[in-house]
Design a protein around this nucleic acid. Structure first.
Lengths: 192, 192
DNA sequence: TTTATCATGTAAGTCGTTACATGATTGA
DNA sequence: TCAATCATGTAACGACTTACATGATAAA
């Protein structure tokens, strides 16, 4: 139900076609909300049918034409209403396959658990490194036009800084946690 | 796609009816995977149709009869295969409505942001407190029969301890993060 | 030569939520 | 008397994924 607001929010600044919106999702919104192209196209259609968006065709010679969407007045209103309404619950659905495997970890045995943690840790470190790299980029080139490409996080925005910070602290906490778990599993294996 | 493995894993230990499985989800698996009753019933049916489960009726006089499911040989095999196969990616879908609002926070303005953070923080603290309470319970009554009720986390299980630990460190990291964000927003409001 | 980018869309299927229907028992 | 617990299910909808179809251009 929030994908529509993500789209309205992105289009609130400037008109865009579906493909370009997907690029924005992957480059910046991805930290907080992700969506597939097919889902974006469908939702854009729905929003237009419901009068929250309007579209026009931008002709291109060597590539397929672009369908450019922009928000209507009622679309802008809908977005603002959503933005101002604070929800009752901030809970996000909990569904983590790795953790589910861990839940049944005693069934799988210590060797499988160790190997799982090693691979998990490698990915967790890569995630944490990517978050750090992204933050440093923003610090060093606060107004580099490259950073503004396709609506890359605006570095002067305090709220975007908050999002980055959260990504940093949680990704680092998870790395530490996985390191500790793996250390315990490995020290045990050495002792036995 | 993982709900089926959660069900097979729970039923691997002992036969149960759908309602009792839901209780297990809410009491322990909820940290890692959640599911509604209607979804559980449907998935149990599917698994039986596909031969991974079999069911029998347990008659009751004053209450509706129970349909008790148990894993078949192929069900046990399917579960073990899943448990032993380490996935390529450990990524979980990122969809957080509060963070999405924050992404557009500069549009909403500082007052709405402050109020949002206050409420978010209250819930984050409650979550962290619930995790702490749950951990302490397990420490104090490691073999209390009440703790074993409906498959409550087995306290001697190292992997369950890992899951608890992760819930603890991440929930605490999020509380600290929200406190810092709110402090920055409020100090700013006082200065201006 | 294969892969990636650009660009839009359809179709099928899975997964998840919410609401509805039924009905006895027990505790606040 | 109202809500909660026990117990199973159906129906409708909404959200999300994966695969398919098409086809040019440019870079590795």
């Amino acid at each position: 139900m929030s994908l529509r607001y993500a789209l309205l929010g992105i289009l609130d600044k400037r008109p865009l076609n579906g493909y370009a919106i997907k690029a924005i999702f992957d480059e910046s919104v991805a930290f907080v909300w992700q969506a597939e192209l097919s889902q974006i196209y469908r939702e854009l259609e729905n929003l237009e049918k419901q009068g929250y968006l309007s579209s026009s065709i931008e002709a291109q010679q060597d590539r397929p034409n672009k369908r450019i969407y922009q928000t209507t007045e009622s679309g802008k209103r809908l977005f603002r209403e959503w933005l101002e309404a604070i929800p009752d619950s901030f809970a996000v659905p909990k569904r983590d396959e790795f953790m589910l495997r861990l839940f049944f970890g005693s069934v799988a045995g210590p060797e499988a658990a160790k190997e799982g943690f090693r691979r998990f840790l490698a990915q967790a470190r890569a995630t944490a490194a990517a978050v750090r790299a992204d933050s440093r980029l923003a610090e060093r080139f606060p107004d580099d036009p490259l950073m503004a490409r396709a609506d890359r996080f605006a570095s002067e925005d305090r709220y975007i800084r908050f999002i980055r910070k959260r990504a940093a602290v949680t990704s680092e906490a998870i790395v530490r946690w996985a390191e500790e778990c793996l250390a315990e599993l490995e020290s045990d294996g050495a002792a036995s």
